[in-house]
Every structure is written in structure tokens, then in C-alpha cells.
Simulated scan of single mutants.
Amino acid sequence: MKKLNVSELKPGMRFTKPVYLDKENLFITSNTPITDSDLERLKRFGITEVLTHGDILVIDVDPERLETQLEDFIISTIVDEDLLPLKGIYDNLNRIKVQFSNLYKNTFALVQDVYRKVADDKVFDFGPVREQGETLADFVRTHNNLSYLILGMNNPGYYLYNQITTSTFYALIIGKLLDFSRPKMVDLAISCLVADVGMTKVPATISEKTDQLTDEEYKSILKHTIIGYQVLTQRIKIKNSLAVVALQHHERFDGKGYPQKIAATAIEENARIYAIADNFSALITNRPHRQRVLPHEAIKSMISMDVGKFDLKIVRTFLNQVSLYPVGSCVELSDKRVGIVLAANADKPLRPSIRIIKDEYGTFVRNLILVDLVKENHLFIVKALDLQEATSNS
């Protein structure tokens, strides 16, 4: 490995390979920008050299690419001292962005493989599902504010596999907030990953239909929970506590769901959690029969129109974490600046902390600008925006 003088490192620099403090201790992963706090940490510990096999990664600064790589164009991450806790949140999310993206893609690929094999009645090894469940659980247990990265993903591919992947992340976020142990988190992850295997037995002409379903087609959809449960317990032979989410995730807290019309705590806790995560993910995702809604509208729906559907205690727990304007969603402030919600303020869900991405003239900012709406009480959120539209130059 070649040596790099710390004095030559600058904020925003990225390398094609990981950078190490020594032969064993990682400093930053590949394609991760160095921040001011990283350099301060090196200085504080008296480190004058770091090691890497890589080279400096040159970023094409074509402004037409701003919509997909906003972080790549930040040239200064210096903020006021009172905003350093927020900067710490931003730095960590930026540091784990590549790791999260890879984890999401690997989960999507696994779900796709498993569901296709179930659809074709093929035998498969369940071990990778458990391993992925452990990886997902450990990742969510380790990191906070992950909705920022989830909502920032532009996910190609079949919507059902994206739906399962995103819902699993959100379910694990809820499990973490409920202080689940690691074994409970792993079980939650596994049960979520296979929760919709029954949908593979619904003909695509029905599941992907854009017109209104007939009564018979709707009944076919309703059967997917029982079919999924039977596949998991009889064919794959996983334990009932993992398969029950497939059976119960469309039950309602008020007893008006399906297939058994059970209510309240008769519904297993993991199924109540997944129902919330699945509903939120479904609302913010384009489906064959309808367009997605903004994350803010999804939250409003879940705490108002769909009030009888969910365990409200769990919904409130979820809301405290993701905010009424969910972490990762895009908003316009009263001074016409546009930003992405970086962190929720549990006591004041209408006043989260924001990372500004556009100034009042609609120009992308090149400095890290953070706003805590609890402290900046002269500002307020005017409206929620579509993130993809707001970050597009078209």
C-alpha cells in the first residue's frame, strides 16, 4: 500500500480503494468523501500518514448530474458549532451510503431469487435468507436515520421485490425503536423477507393489472396470505413464528382485515409491525394500478384515514422516528429554500432538521447547510415536494 500525507488530504476527496490508518484499521471505505471531522480526528490522534491501494477518485462536476449525486458536489462541510450534532448525522449517513446501497441491492437480488424459485416450485436453500436477515438486523441496529438513505434510493426493477426490501428496512427500524433484542430483530427480518411469497402464486395478469379488479380477481389476491403461509410451513418448513407474518400482515387492528379477521394483540407483534412498514412502503411506491404519494401524505393517511387499520402505539413509535415529514423526504421552507429532512424532532414532528439542497433562487448549494427548525422558529415547512422532481434540472 502507498502512503498518503494527511496534510495533503482535503474535504470531499474520495479514493478508488479503502483508506487505512494502518494495515488493519480502516479509515474510510472506497468512494466515501473525506469530511472535516475525519481530518480533525486524524489531527487529534496525531496521525500524519494513511495507507491505500487506491487513487484519488475524480468526480465529473457536470451540473446536469446534480440530481443523482448531490453529495459529490459539496465543497465545504463547515457548520456552526451548535449544528455539529446534525453534521455528525449527515457525515455518518454519507459514510455508509455505499454500504447501504450494496446491502439494498443484495437484499433485492435475494428476494428476487427466492420468490422466483417459489413461483416455479423449485427447491432452494433457506440459509441465505437467514444470513441476509442477520446482516440487515445488524446494520439497522448499528445505524440511525436510515430513512434518509431509503427514500434517496432510485430503485429499478420489479416493484414487488423493491416493496419487500424497503418494507423490511422500515420494519427493522420499528423493531429497533421497540428495543428488540438481536435474535428478535433477526427473526423479524427473516419473516419480512418472505412475507409476500404467496404473491408469486397470483397470476401476473391479476397482480400487475392496471384496471379495476373483478370480484374473482380480488378473491385471488386475498388468497396470497394463506398460500404464502402454506408454502413457508409445509414446503420450506420454517417455524410458525417466522411464517405467521405472511399469514397475518393484512389483518387489521380493528378486526376488519383478512384472512382470519382477528384483531388487536391477537395479531402477532411482528405482523403488526410489518403491516405498518408494508403500508408505508406501498403508498410511496409506484404500483401498476396507481401512482405513489409523497411520504408526508403517506404518514397523514396512516394516522387519519387508516386509523383503524394499525396498532396506533406502533404507528406513534414509527412517527417519532421518521417524522410527520419523513426523514429523507423533500420539503420547501417558508424562505423558498428546498431541503431534505435529515432528522426528526420527536417532541415537535412538524419541525424536523433539514439539509438544504437548493437556495431561494432554485440553485443547488455547494456547501453543507443545515437547519434545525426547532431553533430557527421563524422558518417553517410550506409544503412537501417530490424528491426526484426537486433534484432534477429538467
Rank of each mutant, 00 (worst) to 15 (best):
A189Q: 06
I238S: 08
A263S: 14
N154E: 11
D187R: 10
V194Q: 01
Y161D: 13
Q212S: 14
E217Y: 04
K261S: 15
K184R: 12
G257T: 06
L188W: 08
I221P: 04
V140I: 13
F180I: 03
Y158C: 01
Q248S: 12
M185C: 05
I164S: 09
N162W: 08
V186P: 14
K261F: 14
S181T: 12
N144W: 08
I174P: 01
G257F: 02
Y170T: 13
N155T: 14
L151P: 05
L146C: 09
N155H: 09
P156A: 08
L247Q: 07
E208R: 14
V140F: 04
L172W: 00
H143V: 05
A195Q: 10
K237I: 05
R252E: 13
K176G: 04
F180W: 02
P183H: 06
Q248E: 15
Q163Y: 15
P183Y: 02
V140L: 01
E217N: 06
K261Y: 13
I226Y: 10
K239L: 07
I227S: 06
N162Q: 11
T168K: 02
G198D: 04
T210G: 15
Y161Q: 10
Y229F: 15
D254G: 07
D196V: 07
P156Q: 06
I221T: 07
V244W: 04
A266N: 15
N240K: 15
T214W: 08
A204V: 13
R182Q: 01
K223E: 14
F180C: 07
I267K: 11
E251Y: 12
G152Y: 03
M185K: 07
G198S: 07
Y158H: 11
N144L: 01
L242D: 08
I227V: 11
L222K: 08
L146Q: 09
Y229M: 12
G228D: 07
I221V: 10
A171F: 00
F253I: 04
Y148H: 05
F139H: 06
G255N: 04
V202M: 00
G152L: 02
A263Q: 09
R235V: 15
L213E: 06
L178G: 03
L193I: 10
R252C: 15
F180N: 05
P203H: 07
A171I: 00
M185P: 00
Y218H: 12
T200Y: 07
I206K: 04
R141V: 02
L232E: 03
F139W: 00
I236C: 11
F169E: 00
V140Y: 00
A263P: 01
L188N: 02
G228M: 00
G157P: 09
D254L: 00
L242S: 11
Y158W: 08
L232G: 09
P259W: 01
